[in-house]
Structures are given as structure tokens and as C-alpha cells.
Design a protein around this nucleic acid. Structure first.
Lengths: 144, 144
DNA sequence: TTTATTTCGGACAAAATTATCTTAATATAA
DNA sequence: TTATATTAAGATAATTTTGTCCGAAATAAA
């Protein structure tokens, strides 16, 4: 479903979100520890997310990553997926045809209209604040 | 969503299904042509499908691939996906955690319960005969 | 201003996936 | 029986994705 990069990206963003809620800026190392990911590779993904203005990065001592607290409820998982994996999951033909639409569909097209709508909506209506709250309560986890 | 191998596998099986409906056995080359796939790589995928007894293969002159006509309505796309990509799409944690379930869920777990149920059911209730009929009517296509 | 800390960016490396090539095995028909 | 057509299987190669390393840039503090 999601690439490995994207999974790391989502988990990293959620961890940053959780900490940002309490005004804590977190370092690359702390993030990689928290989500059990390779540190240097995680750095690359965080760069992508920073360029997409989903997270903020600060260099230097006490630098690290954070998300504007008031933005938490306005950022969706959909945005993260788009930034890292692009939108072929939402747009592209399930069977990989170059073009595929209602008029000239692949054999799976119609079956996937509903599934993708649900997927897209679920990801679009999710938001970092809600997810961070569950993390705080220990209802969900980011590694294991 | 699906690996490239899996997409080839689905398309190849659907093409074989369509031809098998009319008692036509098809060659590797014909399949690769019909679905616009690399021929040798397609051969590998067909081997997997043959071992999974989803398709039948015959060597020698006039050999090729076919599916028992009476089985067409009993084979689902779900079976093809399982044979090629395994069932991590249906089972595995969306965020890649080693274990993830209702008791100790990842932050996306509950959101994906519905999506995956729908995905799994859609694929499980599909069958080769129905899809082949649409292909026959020209309502759907396998390449472009 | 110098030093320490941290992310950024580019080059490089490893692993996984996708793709090809060659030979073997099998079946058909002449 | 021999030649031919076809898939099977194994080795190899190319590409993409994932992962590492190192120096540069930026920032803060001494």
C-alpha cells in the first residue's frame, strides 16, 4: 500500500506531532529511536516533509523538528502520503495502465472506485492532532 | 497497492481466462503481447500462478496456458494477489509494525479495518468469468 | 570569534524488485 | 526417431528503493 519511505514518514510526523503538542522540538536521533527507523534514511524523508512545509526543521544546537501547534488539526495523513509517494495510489490505474478512466477502464477500475474513495477520504479527514492524542493516551503505538 | 509482478499476474490471468472461455489455449508470447509486459518476466509470474494451480501450463508445440472453463467462476482476484504478493496487503500492519492488532494497534489500525475489509471482500468476491465477459464485450481493456 | 551541535545535500552502497538470457525439459508431429 | 515448438529453471543483469557516509551550512552558546 505505502512505500517503506512513506511508512517512516507517517510515523515520524506523528511522533513530531505528539511532541509538538507539548511544545517539544525533537531531534532526528530521537525520532529514529521512537519509530525504529534507520537514522540517515529518516533524515532524507524528513527533508522531503520539511520542503513540503508539513514539518519545520531547525539547524544547530537544540535544533530539530516540530510542527506549528495550531496547524496540527489541519494536517492530514493524506498530505504526508502525497508528499512522499505522490498520488498514484489515489490516481493511477490499479493495474498500471497508462490511462484508465470510466470511459476506457481496466477490468478492475469500477471495483476500485469505492475502495479508493474510502481510502482517500479516510486519509484526508484524518488529522495529526487526533492521532497524537491517542498516542498520548497510550492507545496506539509507533513501534514494536 | 499491488507490485508490478502482481499487476502483470492479474492481467495475464484475465487474458487467459478470456481465451479459455472459448477453449483457446494461449502462448506466453501472445499473453505478453496482449498485456504489454516483458515476455521473460511474464514467464516467471506464470510459473508462480501455475504452481498455485490457478492456471494450467502445457509444454511443447501448441502448448501454452489455459484455465479449466468450469473453474473460471470459482477463481477470484484475491487468489492471484495472494499467490504473488502474499497476504501482507490484507494482514500486515499498514505502518509496518511487527505486530499490530486491535489490542495494541498502530495509529492507523482502526481507520484501515474498514478499508481492508472492503478491499479483501471486493477481491474475494470477484471472479474470472465475470471479468472475462466484460473483456469480451470490449467494456474493459488490458493494455494501453 | 571559536567551538559544538544539529540539519542539509550530495555521493555512494546495499538490498529488493524487475527484467533478460541461456540451457534444460517436455510434448507434438513429421 | 528426429526435429521443432513450447514452457521450466537457473544464472545473470538492470533498475528502483532503501540505506549509509561525509563534508557543508546554519545556529547557538561559550
Amino acid at each position: 500500500m505505502f512505500s517503506k519511505s512513506c511508512k517512516y514518514g507517517i510515523k515520524a510526523t506523528l511522533y513530531i506531532a505528539q511532541k509538538s503538542q507539548h511544545d517539544e522540538r525533537v531531534s532526528l536521533k530521537e525520532i529514529a529511536d521512537a519509530i525504529n527507523s534507520p537514522i540517515a534514511f529518516t533524515a532524507k524523508i524528513l527533508q522531503i516533509l520539511a520542503k513540503a512545509t508539513i514539518i519545520n526543521s531547525t539547524k544547530g544546537p537544540n535544533g530539530g523538528f516540530e510542527i506549528d501547534k495550531v496547524q496540527l488539526s489541519k494536517i492530514s495523513i493524506h498530505q504526508i502520503v502525497e508528499a512522499i509517494d505522490g498520488n498514484r495510489l489515489f490516481d493511477g490505474c490499479v493495474l498500471g495502465l497508462n490511462s484508465c478512466n470510466a470511459k476506457e477502464p481496466c477490468p478492475m477500475h469500477s471495483e476500485f472506485v469505492i475502495i479508493r474513495k474510502q481510502l482517500s477520504e479516510t486519509l484526508a479527514t484524518s488529522n495529526l492532532l487526533d492521532v497524537a492524542l491517542d498516542l498520548n493516551l497510550g492507545l496506539t503505538v509507533l513501534k514494536r
